[in-house]
Design a protein around this nucleic acid. Sequence first.
DNA 1: AAAATATATTAAAACGTTTCGATATAATAT
DNA 2: ATATTATATCGAAACGTTTTAATATATTTT
Lengths: 337, 337
Amino acid sequence: MVTIKDIAKKANVSISTVSLVLNNKGYVSPETSERILNIINDLNYKPLHSARKLATRKTGNIGYIIWENHFSEVEMFYSQIFLGMEYAARESDYYILLTTVKDDFDPKTDLPRFLKYNDVDGVVLAGRVPHSLVEYLDKQRMPFVLVDYGIPGKIYNSVLIDNYNGAFNAVESLIQSGRKRIAFVGGTFSHPSIKERFRGYKEVLESYNLISDGHLKKYTHLEDAETSREIGEKGVSILLTEKLLPDAIFCCNDTTALGALTEIQRKKLKIPQDIAVVGFDDIPTAAFNLPKLSTVRVPKLLLGKEAFKLLNDVIDNPRLPAQTRLISTEFIKRESS
Amino acid sequence: MVTIKDIAKKANVSISTVSLVLNNKGYVSPETSERILNIINDLNYKPLHSARKLATRKTGNIGYIIWENHFSEVEMFYSQIFLGMEYAARESDYYILLTTVKDDFDPKTDLPRFLKYNDVDGVVLAGRVPHSLVEYLDKQRMPFVLVDYGIPGKIYNSVLIDNYNGAFNAVESLIQSGRKRIAFVGGTFSHPSIKERFRGYKEVLESYNLISDGHLKKYTHLEDAETSREIGEKGVSILLTEKLLPDAIFCCNDTTALGALTEIQRKKLKIPQDIAVVGFDDIPTAAFNLPKLSTVRVPKLLLGKEAFKLLNDVIDNPRLPAQTRLISTEFIKRESS
DNA sequence: AAAATATATTAAAACGTTTCGATATAATAT
DNA sequence: ATATTATATCGAAACGTTTTAATATATTTT
């Protein structure tokens, strides 16, 4: 195994000098530097990470935590965010340790290994995540970033989707194609993202004067259960008991929308002629479904990349005031609208 | 930060002794041991991994490599395998580093970071994976395990699905429910798993004497493109040009089967009355589709767990002759058959 | 009773880096 | 010419562990 010593010997310099060029720090003459670099290359020397970490007291890892169910679920949403982070991490030599936390998480007993053993320099939390965990990280002064989630009343470093405008634009497109009675179906209403999507929905209707008395009562179906196809099916089946059927349904996300499509088809209504449906997220299934689902595309890789970059900034400068970076979306019109 | 020195001082022993109890090695009296353990607990001491790794020359990491497209895809198959590994790893203090490799992978330039920098003690490769990578690992004497993939003509450590029996049983169930003309639709025919599924399909038909002259020509549709819904749709649309329609279709996996369902519905045929469909994998979508897809369940978490265990064995004993562990499947009958 | 072995503890070296002064020379400012 | 400052290099300590070999005592075997 070739070490920094071998390089130093061969280059006739001290290991300090080699270390300096390795980290390009301090002063070292261009000639020596180049000579050393060549030798490093020739011998295919790679600094041993564990030694380096011991000396620098950094771990070189960052943690990625998601709620267990989110990772077991049908869709790749959070895996894509992970992938975005991994791509970004490749350039800065960080490794990403992925773990899940249980629903009934308790920091006393269920702390992820990498937190327990101090094996990460920072953490990204994606999606809905136990508040006790966030508080724990905050108390421990562990740098962290929330992705696609926020805790009401608290300001943390976070990367968020521009849910409000995404919803606003999507519903506006429905309006512009002539829809008048636009319904909303959603689950997990306690989730800030969903709340924002609902706000976008509501405000665009208001601005086009499409909210009559009782509209919200009749045409919105909100639950606080985890979003799922079932929520979509159930929501639609209730909506379809109205005497005046909605002519479009904006769903809080694609999973819900897929359920909605299923239920509408089961009731023998035509999509999009009778009822148009629009989702949110652009999960891969959306493009393969029959009919193909119109939706708001969330750039998941970008979300991961930005989370990584923000976390890096926070690690480098821990006393930075908390900031939020908004990632904008794109409306994708397909067959369902 | 509390180190082994602090423990030693407080316990009035040398750090060697503390280290010994930490790794329960050598001789240390029960009394001292307990005293030390208590202090460790009181001070909440955790050995610093980088220091430990430096001393032991182990990395404490194992790599998980999948083909890029497999991780970007619709289904969570490989993420679930990862999760199974992660669960298993929790007990033995390994971290798992996930990375993807590109389709046109070249070991000279595209080597995953953790291989380039020697940051893993072993590697799990899941699904179809560049042969050049496998050869590279073999040459480097890096312990590795293949999951759900094999390279024809080579014997490597691997954890495989019992594809043959899975297919055999699934098709047998179709036969027992009275189906006579059972078709096969598949992609990626170069993949050993798919070959095995096909073999199971063929042999059960033979054993029930259901393969007439020309059956395979008429009723099997094999492509060597990556499996996808499109493959399923296309395969079915060709099958449905036969004068005597098949009364059941066994698909090489669920993704393909979902495409098949779509195409059958588009042609206004009834499932399962006119045609039954059975998939393979039991991806989450299978249970949510309309109709719900009958399929062969592959225990993905278990697959990951076994891969991890086997890799561990190989790391501990590198000269073990290569072995293959077969994971058996379960037929899940739902609405489509 | 002596020799051999098992038990218990430790000092010191080693693992491969980074970093902090120290030292020396070269360039620039006074 | 002298004092500063910039450039270049290095020795040695430090990071927190594990491990080897040494030492000491207790127990067992001969």
